[in-house]
Design a protein around this nucleic acid. Sequence first.
DNA 1: TATTGTTATACTCTATAACTATA
DNA 2: TATAGTTATAGAGTATAACAATA
Lengths: 171, 171
Amino acid sequence: MSSVAGKITPDVSARDRAAAIELEGFLPYRLNVLATLVSQSLAKVYGDRFGISIPEWRVLATLGQFREKTAREIGLHSHMHKTTVSRAVAALAERNLIARRPNREDMREAFLTMTPKGQAIYLEIVPLARAFAEQLSEGLSRDELQVLDGLISRLMGKVAHLEGGNGIENT
Amino acid sequence: MSSVAGKITPDVSARDRAAAIELEGFLPYRLNVLATLVSQSLAKVYGDRFGISIPEWRVLATLGQFREKTAREIGLHSHMHKTTVSRAVAALAERNLIARRPNREDMREAFLTMTPKGQAIYLEIVPLARAFAEQLSEGLSRDELQVLDGLISRLMGKVAHLEGGNGIENT
DNA sequence: TATTGTTATACTCTATAACTATA
DNA sequence: TATAGTTATAGAGTATAACAATA
């Protein structure tokens, strides 16, 4: 296959080449590159201007959506490990962007809400994030966006049941 | 909006709620969660059994596809920073999975290829990775997969031209 | 005993900057 | 001067384990 006598064909055999994976066409790779590019571009939008990290943004977004949540609930909702949430919450509380209200019925946990200052920053970020998402999907029809959404949901369901799972669920 | 007199309505106003972003429906977030789950599950497949990291897998995949590439070319092809490539290459060379062949016409760079040992591991990983990708997209029709592929390409093109760019291009 | 949350620690991936050796 | 590649260093993001407080 590879070479005959001293021929200069130190090449991968036909069989091996057939067994190769084209990285550019490999779905896990493509998803990863796309998501990384998107995340980093978006993180720049709120990172540069407000000094907010991705986990911090997710905490704010969750509180913006539900007003009040415990750290545990935030982790479940935004797919973050409890230590990641804990540190994001600590950083936001330190900057007085969120506040803790103890749960008198279970003193282990605390309800978290945005302070007015946090709300203000959140309300500044939202239109920027929204604009980013709109620019991103500009050119895609409503139908295409819906299809993409459905595909993402189905892939998410699939991967949750694949192997090691890992799951990013909280411990 | 928020509360009248001492009423117990410490609630986000209707205006603010309308301005909120639903994380679960926010495309950048969804892409990121999906890609993370997929990447980590796949990385487990080759990480656990062969001690190969994601950057190392990308180097192997690139060499499997093209047989011979410089570190710079690998970085361009697989969207990795030159320092990431450099370390992955060093680790693979250390384990004797890839070999360097100096370019006599430009001694700054070297052509990289897999050793037989590297080939062997690569050829073990490929069917696992392929099986993973197939399981992942199981249930999607050929048409749907093609649509997904097209959408990813278009989003990739879009994000490349958005803002800070970042680009993950090599310096 | 189990759970919420914190902290110490470490690992992966990425990135900047400073360097070398070549060109 | 510019480029290929290495190394030191640092920053995110994530994870495990050990812990305190509470249930």
